[in-house]
């Protein structure tokens, strides 16, 4: 497959290839106890930019504190409250359920960027991201990305703004060739799926762009209308790392996005 121009981002994290991830990091003494000990994510707000979150879904545990949606206008899209708190697909609820299972104390905020308007998909996504950066969340889960080359500059600016504004962006890698923003920018935590059925197993890849591998194969997830399903994809790997990041941020409020990423790398499976 290597001769095909395909970004097989999961490949380094799967099966025998994992042996190549051996990497002597500089954090010999930092272990999971130090990074996560006693934390349940309390005090951390996680935004999930996706298809919405079902407020009453059992998997969300009543932790959805606010729901917003992006509404297209004649000019730039705007972000408005979404009191219904619905999920038009099930995907956002799946991500929320994963984050809640790892960080049950974290507060969840839904920013729905999928709606009836097909125009300006990338612009809607950007509007949701801007809102999250400006509203006091410290972890943002992005299980989606934009292909629009025209938005390269905007997303680059936004990831810098997030990074310097102490907001950690966790972004699913896209398995399809071509540009994918912001998942391939260096300041985000980019995630692909591995094939170990364990939410507490994650890998650090010293050969970017995709730095982390997390549980993403046959994940038991929440789905729409109170249901559940079994899902596979980088989409479901990202919220595992977002949940871990929420735990770290709760236990180490002074840690910057760079330091949170370093702690995730230091505590990854070897």
């Amino acid at each position: 497959m290597t001769d095909l121009d395909l970004p097989a981002w999961s490949e380094p994290f799967v099966g025998q290839r994992r042996a190549e991830l051996e990497h002597l990091g500089p954090f010999g003494v930092l272990d999971r106890d130090a990074a996560f000990g006693g934390s349940d994510g309390s005090g951390v707000r996680v935004a999930i930019i996706d298809s919405g979150i079902e407020r009453d879904h059992a998997a969300v545990g009543g932790r959805l504190i606010a729901s917003y949606r992006v509404e297209p206008t004649d000019e730039d899209p705007i972000v408005v409250e979404d009191p219904e708190a619905i999920d038009v697909v099930g995907h956002g609820t799946a991500c929320a359920g994963i984050i809640h299972s790892l960080a049950p104390g974290a507060e969840l905020i839904s920013v729905r960027v999928l709606g009836p308007d097909n125009r300006g998909k990338g612009a809607n996504f950007a509007a949701g991201l801007i809102w999250a950066i400006e509203h006091g969340v410290t972890v943002v889960n992005l299980s989606l990305s934009s292909r629009s080359e025209a938005l390269f500059g905007l997303f680059h600016e936004l990831t810098d703004e997030a990074y310097f504004g102490n907001v950690l962006l966790v972004s699913a890698a896209n398995n399809v060739p071509g540009p994918s923003y912001p998942s391939l920018f260096s300041s985000v935590v980019s995630v692909a799926a591995h094939d170990v059925p364990d939410p507490w197993t994650w890998y650090y890849n010293p050969r970017p762009p995709v730095e982390f591998g997390a549980h993403g194969l046959d994940v038991d997830v929440a789905w729409r209308d109170g249901g559940r399903t079994v899902a596979t994809g980088n989409s479901f790997a990202a919220p595992h790392v977002a949940g871990l990041a929420a735990l770290i941020r709760a236990g180490h409020p002074a840690a910057t996005p760079f330091e949170v990423k370093a702690m995730l790398a230091a505590t990854a499976n070897r």
């Binding site: 097909n118 299980s143 896209n174 398995n175 399809v176 209308d225």
Partner: peptide, 20 residues
């Protein structure tokens, strides 16, 4: 979802959710 987000995904055990 895949069309709107460009994000590939797979689901199994679909019949567990009768409304799906």
């Amino acid at each position: 979802y895949v069309f709107r987000t460009g994000q590939a995904l797979a689901l199994s055990d679909v019949e567990r959710d009768p409304r799906f």
